[in-house]
Design a protein around this nucleic acid. Structure first.
Lengths: 211, 211
DNA sequence: GTATGTGAATTTCTTCACAGCA
DNA sequence: TGCTGTGAAGAAATTCACATAC
């Protein structure tokens, strides 16, 4: 079983599935399951079993033929591959409705992402508190992050402001951005952006409702 | 240019991009742009121009060779294809941090999705108000929706509660579900589910930060 | 000249199917 | 026997390239 596949770049869908597998393994661990086969994980995630095995093959060999995978060990391997061993510091821009909710969303901290600063451009919001954090002026973001050194930013502002905010984050040294604004901001190469448009998700559902 | 492609099923990625195109066309209309070529739309969305034209070809011919597309007209066509001519009523389950933000998220109403009821199972939350809406007991959901007739549901509850909530929504006649719980709920065929795991999005960013 | 719509070519992604190992 | 890891096959999605239309 020499692993030739490990030389190839894992595909984008593969990376997105790794996160699903970690989630599944975490749930299995909670239930006290020690070992799982690729078929077990396939059943729980809806991913094809061969797909699961091929996804892993880009990174190494983690299973035992005839037995399956050690749940805890595989979870640790995948967390390591995804860069989740260390906690991540995250900047949040936008202290409106959605931003406030994201600041208090327990899932982030539970899984190792800590929001360390919140920014806005609205003078009425600057200085107020969201949880433990005081909302700061977005103009001060690059300076503030020179100290905090967060490498991930979350954008929760209206579409019209998104590009300016993204530019500010990049100027502040942020290398990865999760954008909730319904816009497609442009960034220089080397910066990763993921766009999550909540309304767009509903629009896709709307399409399938009538087809 | 007889359209043979229109007989084929549009792919899943095609449907997701349609929403991006609508967003882009809306922005162009706002800027007063009347006509756009596939290259213009490609530049604004990051999608390849041929991809854009092929995506449209599943639904008809909307452009004029040598001129491009009428921005307003194409937007209307795409909105129609996506089922966005009529407003959609939406049920929201989960009145916590995230649920409350979604209830107040202006992007939904602006784009034709109205949250018409909010549910929770926490006695402390039932009876309180979120915006104009009183939080109702999730047990009453099927009964309440017999009157409201919403066909879309949003799930913003902890992972452990997700499957039960999804089952309740389906029992209430909901046909499409947007799930924010970090879980993969199972539904009978005929029901569409889209899973949005916010933490998972950050995990994917984490991967790309180190590769 | 300019830009569409689309077959054909290409690339990417998924699934099959089986050799090899515990 | 049971299940992994993976080459080969197959399916899906993207991009090219050009005939066609304005």
């Amino acid at each position: 079983m020499s692993n030739r596949n490990a030389r190839l770049q894992p595909s984008k869908p593969t990376i997105e599935r790794l996160s699903t597998y970690i989630k599944c393994l975490r749930a299995m661990k909670k239930e006290g399951i020690l070992t799982a086969s690729s078929a077990d994980i396939a059943a729980a995630t809806g991913v094809n079993a061969a797909q699961f095995r091929k996804d892993l093959s880009y990174f190494g060999e983690f299973g035992t033929p005839g037995r399956g995978y050690d749940v805890e060990q595989l979870q640790a391997h995948l967390a390591n591959i995804m860069g989740l061993r260390e906690k991540h510091r995250v900047l949040l821009v936008g202290a409106g409705n959605l931003g406030s909710a994201l600041a208090g969303y327990p899932g982030f901290k539970e899984r190792g992402f800590e929001i360390v600063a919140v920014f806005d451009n609205d003078p009425h919001k600057i200085g107020t508190k969201i949880g433990d954090l005081e909302v700061m002026d977005v103009d001060t973001l690059p300076k503030v992050n020179a100290t905090l050194n967060a490498d991930i930013g979350i954008v929760a502002v209206p579409a019209a402001a998104a590009q300016a905010v993204v530019d500010r984050l990049v100027a502040g040294g942020v290398k990865a951005i999760l954008n909730f604004a319904p816009a497609t901001p442009q960034v220089r190469s080397g910066i990763v952006v993921r766009n999550v448009d909540l309304t767009s998700e509903l629009e896709v559902l709307s399409y399938y409702l009538q087809h």
